[in-house]
């Protein structure tokens, strides 16, 4: 099966410190892969690397056919990737609809896709016209999710996506992930809510030993490039 993410011995050095010291990871198209690991293990760094936000210092890193070592063409990659991180990237002064429209249009999303994303994330009625500054943490998260959904990315990178969401929000997120995969997207997520995330994922990859090693859940060794 075609690899959406191919990392082999990928090293990322930030300043003088190795944030990743040789990550190996293969993710096939249409997979849902959970990255598991303790705080500081490097889950977020892997996601940011795959989004093209961090440089690969050594090793191979190819995402959606784009070699991350080649800084040209990064813009095309980023249009095809959606990252939901700890920070939402939302503008407090703008309304929910304004934010989703802006980030959607930035990625050339159709008006219909933007409206559909708002509805899919439950951002309708008075909530859609509320400034982001007046939203709860969970509502902010939903808005950020709607921004991502409106872009219809081929690769979803979700960093602790369940954090801050209530039960309905978590169910909604899981449903959106399922729909995205059904329509051909690939999903890599990190989460400390292992029970829910593992139920969602096809495969679990464990990042251990302070970002320097990768292992997988029992019975899934064939996916690991040692």
């Amino acid at each position: 099966m075609e690899s959406v993410i191919h990392l082999r011995g990928a090293v990322t050095v930030l300043g003088r410190f190795p944030a990743l010291a040789g990550i190996d990871l293969e993710v096939a198209a249409g997979e849902i892969v959970l990255l598991r690991g303790s705080n500081g293990a490097g889950k977020t760094t892997v996601l940011r690397l795959c989004a093209g936000l961090l440089p690969v210092t050594r090793g191979e890193a190819i995402v959606l056919g784009h070699d991350l070592a080649d800084r040209r063409g990064g813009r095309d990659l980023r249009r095809r990737v959606g990252l939901l991180g700890h920070a939402t990237g939302l503008y407090d002064e703008l309304t929910v609809t304004d934010n989703v429209r802006f980030w959607g249009r930035a990625a050339d999303a159709a008006a219909g896709d933007i409206d559909a994303a708002l509805v899919a994330c439950g951002l309708v009625g008075a909530l859609a016209d509320r400034p982001v500054a007046r939203l709860s943490a969970g509502q902010r998260r939903r808005t950020a999710l709607a921004c991502l959904v409106s872009r219809r990315p081929e690769l979803w990178l979700l960093d602790e996506p369940h954090a801050g969401l209530d039960q309905d929000g978590r169910d909604l997120l899981d449903g959106l992930v399922g729909s995205a995969v059904a329509s051909g997207a690939t999903v890599v997520l990190s989460s400390h809510e292992l029970e829910r995330a593992e139920a969602l994922a096809d495969r679990v990859v464990t990042i251990v030993a302070g970002t320097t090693d990768v292992s997988v859940a029992a019975g899934e060794e064939s996916f690991l490039v040692p």
């Binding site: 936000l53 980023r78 920070a87 939402t88 990237g89 503008y91 980030w103 930035a106 990625a107 050339d108």
Partner: peptide, 15 residues
């Protein structure tokens, strides 16, 4: 604020 710079880099907008 709130990761706007990274969001801008990821947006696909022409710099």
């Amino acid at each position: 604020a709130d990761g706007g710079r990274d969001a801008l880099r990821l947006s696909g907008l022409d710099p």
